[in-house]
Design a protein around this nucleic acid. Structure first.
Lengths: 332, 332
DNA sequence: TTGTAGGCGTTATCAA
DNA sequence: TTGATAACGCCTACAA
C-alpha cells in the first residue's frame, strides 16, 4: 500500500505539504498537479486507521439492530444510511439476533472500533450498560435510540406513536361494533409492546368496554407466536370477535392460523395487523394494517445524529414521536 | 480514554509488559493481578485503530449487499455473522440499495476502513472494479462472492444451484400437464436471473415443449414488477396456464395480481414462487415455492472466508453450489 | 519475566 | 506556501 511518504518521495515535496493538500489545504498549482499525478500513479489512498489515531474521528456510525431479517428495520436503516452518507459518514450495521448478551457485545465492538456515533434499536440493554459500553474520550459518543426509547434513560430517541396507532386501530374495530377484542403483543417488557397494549387498553376504557385480560396475549414477535396465540384465542369458550396483532411476523402467523381454521379475516372477524403492508394485499379482503413511517424514522434519526456530531447539544434529550398511518380496507 | 500508558503508570510496570499480557503473553501472577485491577479501574480497552496500524489487521469483515430490506439477505447475513463471530471477527454490513455506483463506493469505504475480508453480494460491479477498490498491501483482501458469481472473474463464490432449482420447478408444472408456462425473472444481466431462465428453458427443451419468448418476462425484482408482469401475461390473447416467479418480491406482486383478478393460484393456474416460504402459507391452497438454503450459504461463506484469512489458498477459486429445496403443496 | 526503543501512517504546530 | 518534527496508542524485536 502506498503511503503519504511515497507520494512525498515521488513529488519531491514534503510529507506535511501532501497531507495539507489532501485535507483541503491549498498548494501552488504545479505542486497540486504533481501531487494528483503521484496519487493516481501510486494508487494512494489514506489509511483511515492512522488518520483516526490522530484525529480521534472515524467518520463512521455504528448501527445495532435486533435482526436484519425483517423489512421494517431494513427500511429504517436504508433511510438512515442515506442521510448519513450525504454528510460523508459511512454506516456499519450489526445485528444482535434478539440476543441480549450479543446486544451489549455488539455495542462494545462498535465502541472498540471507534465509531463516532451509535444508532441503537434496543431491546434488553439498560442505560447504564450503554454508558459503560460506550465510555470513552471527552463527552462521549452520541447515541440515538430508534423505535424504542428506554424509560428513565435520558437519550435522544426517535419512536413511533405506538399508543395512538393502536388506539386508533382498536377504536376502528369498536366502531364496527366489536366488544370482545383480542390483542397479540410482544412481551410487555419491550417498551413498544407496552405502549401498544396501553393504546388498546385506553381505547377500550374510553368506549366503556371492560377489558378481559384473557384476551391479551404476549408472544415473541415471531411467526410461530402469532400462529399459536391465534389458535389459543379461538379455542377459548368465548373467543374474541376482533383481533389486533402488533407486529409483522406475528401478523403473518395469525393470518396463517386464521387460514388454517377457515376464518376469513375482515369478514368473519374484525382484524388489524401491523407493518405487513405488502402482504396485506395478497389476501382478500385486504387486511387492515398499521404502517409505520420507517423511512422517516431513519431520516430523522440520521439528522439528529448529524446534529449531535456537529456538537449541537441543543434540547437534549430529544424525543421525536412519529405518527403511524392506518390502512383501512374491507368493510368500513 | 485510558491507554496502555495509563495502565503502565498505574501498575508501575512497563508499557511492553502490559502489551504482552494483553496479547496473551505471560506475566508473574502478582503483576497479572495488578494489571487486571488497573484495567478495570481505568476502564481501559485497546484502541483498535492503533493496533491495526501496527498489525495491519482489524479483525473485521465487511459485507456488501444490494439491500437490507429483504429477508433472504438478512438470513444469509445472520448465519455469516455467527460463523465469523465465533472466530473472533466482527462483521460490518453496508447496503448499496441496488445502486451500482454505491456498490463500488461501499467497497471502497470498506477498503479504506481496512477490513480484513469482504463478502459481496454483487450486482453490477465487475472483477476489475473489485480488484481496484480493494487493492492494498501484500496479497490483497480475500473476497467471497455470495449468491452471485461473476462470470469470468476468478473468485471464491457460494451460490445456489439456481438452474436445477428452476428446472425442477418447471418440470413439476410440466408433469401437471402444463404446456404454456410463463416465467417472470429479474433482468438477465443479473447472473442468477439468467441461470434461472436457463433452468426454465432447459426443462422445456427436455420435455419437447417449444419455448414461447412472449411468456418470458423480465422485471426489476420488486413487488410492482411481479404485479405488472402478471397482469401483462394474463392480458395476452393466449395466456399461460402456469407460471414461475423467481424471487421474493415479484412472487408477492404476482400473488397479489392474481388475487385482484380472482385467479386462485394452484387451482386455476399452476404456480411456483421463490423464497416466500412464510407468505406461501397465508394463502390457500398454499403456494409452491423454492426455498433457498440461506443459513447454509452464510455459514459456508463464513467458513471459506476464515480459511482464506488463515492464509489457506487451497483450490482457489472455490465455487460452492448449494442445492435449493422445493416445497410442493396443493395438488400434486 | 521485564524494559527500552523504534516505527506503523497521519495530522498539527511552528518556523522558515 | 512549505517543511521539520512531535505526537497519536500500540506492538515487537532486542536487550537486560
Amino acid at each position: 500500500m502506498a503511503t503519504i511518504k511515497d507520494v512525498a518521495r515521488e513529488t519531491g515535496l514534503s510529507l506535511a505539504t501532501i497531507s495539507k493538500y489532501i485535507n483541503g489545504g491549498s498548494v501552488r498549482e504545479p505542486n497540486r498537479a504533481r501531487i494528483e499525478a503521484a496519487i493516481e500513479a501510486l494508487g494512494y489512498s489514506v489509511n483511515r486507521n492512522a488518520r483516526s489515531l490522530k484525529t480521534n474521528r472515524t467518520m463512521t456510525i455504528g448501527v445495532v439492530m435486533p435482526t436484519l431479517c425483517v423489512p421494517f428495520f431494513g427500511d429504517v436503516l436504508s433511510a438512515l444510511d442515506g442521510t448519513l452518507r450525504a454528510a460523508g459518514y459511512t454506516t456499519f450495521v450489526c445485528s444482535y439476533e434478539f440476543d441480549r448478551a450479543l446486544e451489549l457485545e455488539k455495542l462494545r465492538a462498535l465502541s472498540n472500533n471507534n465509531v463516532d456515533g451509535v444508532v441503537l434499536i434496543a431491546e434488553g440493554v439498560t442505560g447504564e450498560e450503554i454508558e459503560s459500553a460506550l465510555r470513552r474520550g471527552g463527552r462521549g459518543t452520541p447515541v440515538i435510540l430508534v423505535d424504542r426509547a428506554i424509560p428513565g434513560y435520558p437519550c435522544d430517541s426517535v419512536v413511533i406513536d405506538n399508543l395512538n396507532a393502536t388506539y386508533a386501530a382498536v377504536e376502528h374495530l369498536i366502531t364496527l361494533g366489536h366488544k370482545r377484542i383480542g390483542i397479540i403483543v410482544a412481551s410487555m417488557e419491550i417498551y413498544t409492546a407496552f405502549e401498544r397494549f396501553t393504546g388498546y387498553r385506553r381505547a377500550l376504557e374510553d368506549y366503556g368496554i371492560g377489558m378481559d385480560r384473557t384476551l391479551v396475549l404476549e408472544g415473541n414477535n415471531d411467526f410461530e407466536s402469532g400462529e399459536r396465540l391465534f389458535h389459543r384465542l379461538m379455542d377459548m369458550e368465548n373467543p374474541p370477535t376482533a383481533l389486533c396483532v402488533t407486529n409483522y411476523d406475528m401478523t403473518l402467523g395469525a393470518v396463517t392460523a386464521a387460514h388454517e381454521r377457515g376464518i376469513v379475516l375482515g369478514r368473519d372477524m374484525g382484524f388489524f395487523g401491523f407493518d405487513a403492508v405488502d402482504v396485506s394485499r395478497v389476501v382478500s379482503p385486504r387486511l387492515n394494517v398499521v404502517e409505520q413511517p420507517t423511512r422517516l424514522m431513519g431520516e430523522r434519526a440520521g439528522e439528529l445524529m448529524l446534529k449531535r456530531l456537529a456538537g449541537d447539544g441543543d434540547s437534549f434529550p430529544e424525543l421525536l414521536r412519529l405518527k403511524a398511518r392506518l390502512h383501512f380496507f374491507g368493510q368500513e
